[in-house]
């Protein structure tokens, strides 16, 4: 199992100018990122949509490298997004998936068949040309260059430690420092994108 913050710190030096959608890793990434205006920490607008959102961003900005930190709960909720990503095959899209084997934000209940799913195999079977799976930080850290050095879409499954929350949602401390719409407007400003 990998500590999510450690994993993101290992990834950070390889980020370059990539657009990063931190997904479930957003809490840590906002403290690590050195280019917040190139990040899209939109939180969790509706569970299951991050992969398709990442696809849309990647297709709309083919000159930019787009990196998504998805979760296994999200992927399970909309597994049909994987064949769409594979069909559209955005060469600039890198799909990392944090697998903590549970629904951490609701108290840590296991996802279906939590310990026996090979997400990298599912991604491969969906048509991703390259897939990886890691359960320790050292192997992941030594492979980041290889992962990002090839054309996308690439899928990377990462076994991470659960960060279980039991506090009622309304009582949790917000880690977001900007609203979702501000995050989007900041990225558009950074890239010079006009329009609504």
């Amino acid at each position: 199992m990998i500590d999510t913050a450690d994993m993101l710190r290992a990834f950070a030096p390889h980020r370059g100018n990539s657009i990063v959608i931190p997904g479930r890793g957003g809490r840590h990434w906002t403290e690590i990122s050195d280019q917040p205006n190139r990040d899209l920490p939109v939180g969790d607008p509706a569970m299951g949509g991050h992969a398709s959102f990442g696809l849309g961003v990647a297709l709309s900005l083919p000159e930019e490298r787009v990196i998504l930190f998805d979760s296994e709960g999200d992927v399970l909720m909309n597994m049909g997004a994987l064949p769409t990503i594979a069909e559209k095959a955005p060469a600039n899209f890198y799909h990392f998936m944090l697998d903590n084997e549970c629904y951490a934000t609701t108290g840590g209940q296991p996802v279906p068949n939590a310990k026996n799913i090979a997400y990298d195999v599912i991604a491969k079977g969906s048509g991703y040309p390259a897939t990886y799976a890691f359960d320790n930080l050292e192997d992941f850290a030594s492979s980041i260059e290889e992962i990002l050095g090839q054309p996308g879409p690439v899928f990377v499954a990462l076994k991470v430690e659960p960060e279980v929350e039991n506090t009622p949602i309304g009582a949790r401390v917000r880690w977001q420092t900007r609203s979702r719409t501000q995050v989007i407007d900041d990225l558009k400003g950074e890239l010079g994108i006009e329009g609504p």
Binding site: S52, F53, V57, S60, G80
Partner: peptide
């Protein structure tokens, strides 16, 4: 026109959101 087929309609809204963020008009 670039066609993006989805397999469940909910994916269409998140896909469209991503495209819009990047300045496209889905």
């Amino acid at each position: 026109l670039d066609l993006i087929p989805v397999s469940r309609e909910g994916q269409a809204f998140s896909t469209a959101a991503g495209l819009t963020v990047g300045g496209k008009k889905p």
